[in-house]
C-alpha cells in the first residue's frame, strides 16, 4: 500500500471536515511537472539490485520481475537513481515538452 491519487480533488464548504483530520495517504496532484530530466531504465543492464529503490527520496521505483520500473507520476527527476546505479542501467534524458 501507499498514498494514491483520488478522483475527488476539491471540497466544497460543506464537504470540508470539521476537524483537521482526514483520510491518510490522500493524493490529489502529481509531481511529474517538476521534471526537466527523467530517468530511463535500460532493462538489459538492470540487475534488480534495488539500490535505486532504496535510495529514491520519493519512493517511486519498484523492482518488478527483476527490473526497476518508475512511477513517472511522482518522479521528480532528481537523478539519485542514476548516480547510485552501479551497472549504469539508469540514463537521465531530457524531458520533452
Amino acid at each position: 500500500m501507499k498514498p494514491y491519487l483520488r478522483e475527488k480533488t476539491t471540497f466544497s464548504a460543506s464537504e470540508v471536515p470539521q476537524a483537521t483530520a482526514f483520510e491518510a495517504g490522500y493524493l490529489v496532484s502529481v509531481n511529474s511537472g517538476w521534471r526537466s530530466i527523467r530517468p530511463v531504465i535500460e532493462p538489459a543492464r538492470c540487475i534488480g539490485c534495488e539500490q535505486c529503490y532504496l535510495y529514491c527520496p520519493d519512493g517511486v521505483i519498484a523492482v518488478q520481475n527483476g527490473k526497476a520500473v518508475i512511477d513517472y507520476d511522482f518522479c521528480k527527476g532528481c537523478g539519485i537513481c542514476a548516480k547510485i546505479c552501479k551497472t549504469g542501467a539508469v540514463r537521465m534524458e531530457a524531458e520533452r515538452e
Binding site: M1, P3, Y4, L5, L27, G48, P57, G59, F74
Partner: peptide, 25 residues
Amino acid sequence: MGNPTAERISRDEYFYGHKACAGCG
C-alpha cells in the same frame, strides 16, 4: 539478486507524493 537491506523493510510506501524538493535528503 536480493538487496539485503530492501528485504528487511516494508515494501509499502508511507511517505509518497510529497512536495519536497527533488533530491531532498
